[in-house]
């Protein structure tokens, strides 16, 4: 490992950067879906959202 690479830490290749960006977008979308889902169910159930049969 040369000095320059050691100073910069691990340098990602283009393929690694691209796949990491894809994964990040997918995680963001999944979290967005989760937020929308919780919001929609809260709207549908209204106050009954707190009443959950066990």
């Amino acid at each position: 490992m040369d000095d320059k690479q050691e100073r910069n830490g691990i340098v990602l290749t283009e393929a690694q950067k691209k796949s990491r960006r894809q994964r990040s977008i997918a995680i963001a979308l999944a979290l967005g879906v989760l937020v929308v889902l919780f919001f929609a169910v809260t709207m549908v159930k209204g106050p009954a959202v707190l009443v959950r049969p066990i």
Partner: peptide
Amino acid sequence: RISEADVADF
């Protein structure tokens, strides 16, 4: 190891 797995792999 830096993963190169894309969304399709998951």
